[in-house]
Design a protein around this nucleic acid. Structure first.
Length: 810
RNA sequence: GGGCGAGUGAUGGAACGGUAGACAUUCGAGAUUUAGGGUCUCGUGCUCGCAAGAGCGUGAGGGUUCGAAUCCCUCCUCGCCCACCA
């Protein structure tokens, strides 16, 4: 019933209310979460902190606003929710910008953070800013250095010379995880290999444990990605002697020891140390030229499967320990220095790559596993399936799976091998030859060698006044008064490590810091942290599935083993939003395609933009940014405004409306809890429309429920309306409306009547109608009768409160 | 090449094996308002029809089922992740 003479009400104007409420909430300390709340159990809700690239873009809103809504929802559901925020403030972007603009990274970062804090506030989040973490401040990165030293003590941080991923544009080494399709994760430049002495974190130590996800609620997608990334392979590590060089062996890893009788050559990676040692004088020039070329190639070129598989014979031989034959040793870049031992046995008959290589270079292809157990002539392609061993000495006739074990047993008995597991995962390279990061707390002394900086001398502060143009070595190398120091052990002259740490080290533990960001005496305040950790709910982008999320798990396990943590998984529950794509690309400042929120906020208000990013589609799936439709959400809030402020006429209760309100509560509770924000908003839209056309006490109760459900999603307007309607305390202190399933039942339902599965009529009948009554009502339908007439009804299907289906024998 | 996911109106998207297209956008018609800002109602998958109505319809083809967008098989397309990992 629409009231004819509606009193004119003031219209909804977000600009007039949003700032006011944010200031009031701040003043009242509404989001200053206490560590203890006697009535509400603690819940630690963290969303990935941003990189302070300049300004927030709508991609940030897409990530943060729904997370904030979920955190607010959790709070209304009875928890004392800590929802903190910080900045991942070190990193290449600021430094690269500084090279261009001349503004010091520290200054630009501080300015960017100030701007982004303002924008976060405009979003109307429940962030507890008292606990902010900023990783580029010495009181934070001091503990990065502490973490490094602890890992070093434990043997989990080590220095090694290895061929590493090198970005020629950013002039720094990169971790494996930071090479995306052969391109630098930051700047999309093709990555090359370079031999460098670098610091690594021994993440491979935890490879097996990282494969287990017991007790944590993580999306299948992420678990699969991490599992694939870790890439566990079972096989054997074996060795062949080098011919004519007693005592020299080549170790190699294989998953197919059963094919060892077919190993007709060996291949070493270009970086393998034995290449130089074993190359025959006559082959030296060719081999050196090949190795040089392989090293200069980018990762993309090297990894291309289209590339012809070529290599060079080094003029040396190994002895196949099973056939006793001399097999030639080759060097080829299809063998990777960083996987297994950097050497393989070439079994062309049963490996596609080896097959191609043998074909190209005229090497023998010898079938040793046969699908039918008989020997065949020349193979036209590698056979990688199961079969029985042939041409394999005393193992002939043995099924190949069985032969795997038997051959490894034999090798073990002869002292030339054993079962082994290899991982695709590499140790985490954390040295960066760049300025804007945490200095590595190590000193090199001519007398004492590598000396860790003692804990009481931390932090090793990053000097401000540095010429930070990159040049292949860390800019800090040129800062002599930084590098030149005294040895903590002997007091003599010594030099500091000039490199800085990967910023993923910073983000691997920042969530331990929030519970008390001011605490400086330990890497975290354990008393406070114990009240919150581990993180109950973590949200963030799917793009971190194998970067940040893997590192954070590793660091948690390492810290737990050192006795600093009482849990081994940092994030109990993980939910990822999909990628927000703008102009066909991921939205990112460094990629130059960002769209700011400010215009939308000015025009429609923060509540509209919040709701809009939630309404766009399923949050976990991501979306292409398109603002078509934001008007619809804006209109919705206008309707809410009008409905909430229009006095309802008196009247009786409306059972249908009461039921709808309850059903909406049920649906929204479920949807928001499951991060299905789009359908939650849709349900609220439906409810609002129904309320618009109603009156009486049911309407009043409905409006109340509507505002409460809207509160986590659109915090400003719901607060304004709540208090305009007479409340004296914040809606954000209220409890989520309770769902009453009994009241949610409509008294009338639409009964669908089908004949042979086709809908022929829809009848309004009382809810809970019996099968018999439903059939009777259905048979009475004119429309149905026309379809059933003259046909034998062989079956009648009844689905309570849903449908009746007549199955005819025709 | 391998793994995972997805294909639904003009568009974003809804739909425990049971009313396909909720909720929006768009477009059209009308109401309210001095106007603007807003709000409300109706219509808006395709075909035939003035209409009532009928038929068709969830990438293609097949299957299971009383009943399939949903489950199974084959194929096609797109997205993401991995990719010379021995």
């Amino acid at each position: 019933m629409v009231t004819k003479e509606k009193p004119r009400i003031e219209r909804y104007s977000p600009a007039a209310i949003e700032r006011k409420w944010r200031e009031r909430w701040d003043r009242d300390g509404l989001y200053a979460t206490p560590d203890d709340d006697p009535d509400h159990p603690n819940f630690y809700f963290v969303t990935m902190y941003p990189y302070p690239s300049g300004v927030l873009h709508v991609g940030h809103w897409y990530a943060m606003a729904p997370s904030d809504a979920a955190a607010r929802f959790t709070r209304m559901r009875g928890h004392n929710v800590l929802f903190p925020m910080g900045f991942d403030a070190f990193g290449l972007n600021a430094e690269n910008a500084a090279i261009k603009t001349g503004v010091h990274p520290s200054d630009s970062t501080e300015a960017n953070m100030a701007g982004m804090r303002r924008q976060f506030r405009e979003m109307g989040t429940m962030i507890d800013w008292r606990r902010e973490v900023v990783t580029c401040h010495p009181d934070y990165y001091k503990w990065n250095q502490w973490l490094f030293l602890k890992l070093y003590e434990k043997g989990l941080a080590y220095r090694a010379t290895a061929p590493v991923n090198w970005c020629p544009k950013d002039q720094t080494a990169l971790a494996n995880e930071q090479v995306i399709n052969g391109l630098c994760e930051r700047c999309d430049t093709p990555v090359t290999k370079k031999d460098l002495t670098q610091w690594f974190f021994r993440i491979t130590e935890y490879a097996d444990e990282l494969l287990g996800f017991e007790g944590i609620d993580w999306p299948e997608r992420v678990r699969v990605m991490q599992t694939n990334w870790i890439g566990r392979s079972e096989g054997a590590r074996l060795s062949f002697d080098v011919a004519d060089r007693p005592g020299t062996r080549i170790d190699f890893f294989t998953t197919r020891p059963d094919t060892i009788f077919g190993a007709t050559f060996m291949v070493l990676a270009p970086e393998h140390p034995l290449v130089a040692e074993l190359t025959a004088p006559a082959k030296k020039r060719a081999v050196e030229a090949y190795v040089a070329r392989a090293r200069a190639a980018t990762e993309i070129e090297r990894a291309s499967t289209e590339r012809e598989r070529i290599g060079v014979d080094i003029g040396a031989f190994a002895v196949n320990a099973f056939t006793g034959e001399r097999v030639p040793i080759w060097v080829a870049d299809y063998v990777l220095a960083t996987y297994g031992t950097g050497a393989i046995m070439g079994v062309p008959a049963h490996d596609e790559r080896d097959f191609d290589f043998a074909k190209r270079h005229g090497l023998e292809i010898r079938e040793v596993v046969s699908p039918d157990g008989t020997e065949h002539g020349p193979l036209s392609e590698a056979y990688i399936g199961p079969g029985t061993l042939v041409r394999s000495g005393r193992f002939g006739g043995v099924p190949n799976e069985e032969a795997k074990r038997a051959i490894v047993d034999d090798a073990k008995a002869r002292g030339i091998g054993e079962p082994s597991v290899t991982y695709r995962l590499r140790d985490w390279l954390i040295s960066r030859q760049r300025y804007w990061g945490t200095p590595i707390p190590i000193v090199y002394c001519p007398k004492d060698g590598m000396v860790p900086v003692p804990e009481d001398q931390l932090p090793v502060e990053l000097p401000y006044d540095v010429e930070f143009t990159p040049g292949g070595a860390s800019p800090l190398t040129k800062k002599r008064d930084f590098v030149e120091t005294t040895c903590p052990k002997c007091g003599g002259p010594a030099e500091r490590d000039p490199d800085t740490m990967d910023t993923f080290v910073d983000s691997a533990w920042y969530m331990y810091r929030y519970p008390d960001a001011q605490y400086e005496k330990a890497f975290m305040n354990e008393a406070a942290a114990r009240k919150w950790l581990p993180v109950d709910q973590y949200t963030g982008g799917i793009e971190h599935a194998v970067l940040h999320l893997l590192y954070a798990r590793f660091i948690a396990k390492a810290l737990a083993d050192m006795g600093y943590l009482w849990f081994r998984e940092p994030f109990r529950r993980l939910r990822n939003q999909g990628m927000i794509v703008f102009k066909q690309r991921k939205m990112s400042k460094s990629r130059g395609n960002v769209l700011g929120p400010d215009e939308y906020v000015t025009k429609y208000g923060a509540d509209t933009l919040r709701l809009f990013v939630m309404f766009m589609g399923p949050w976990t799936e991501g979306a292409d940014w398109d603002d078509a439709g934001i008007e619809g959400v804006y209109r919705f809030l206008h309707r809410v405004w009008d409905v909430a402020l229009t006095k309802a006429a008196d009247g009786p209760r409306d059972a249908d409306l009461d039921a709808l309100v309850q059903r909406t509560i049920g649906k929204v509770t479920e949807d928001v809890g499951a991060y299905h924000f789009n359908t939650a908003v849709a349900a609220l839209m439906e409810l609002t429309r129904a309320l618009y056309h109603s009156s009486g006490p049911s309407r009043e109760d409905g409006v109340r429920a509507l505002l409460l459900m809207l509160a986590p999603l659109a915090p400003h307007i719901s607060e304004e309306l709540w208090q305009r309607r007479g409340a004296t305390r914040s809606i954000h202190l209220e409890a989520w409306p309770a769902y009453d399933a009994a009241k949610a039942k409509a008294k009338e339902i639409t009964l669908v009547v089908q004949v042979d599965g086709k809908v022929r009529d829809r009848l309004q009948v009382p809810a809970g109608i019996s099968a018999g009554d439903a059939e009777k009502a259905a048979r009475a339908s004119e429309k149905v009768r026309a379809y059933v007439e003259g046909k034998p009804v062989v079956d009648v299907r009844f689905v309570p409160d849903r449908l009746v289906n007549f199955v005819t024998g025709a």
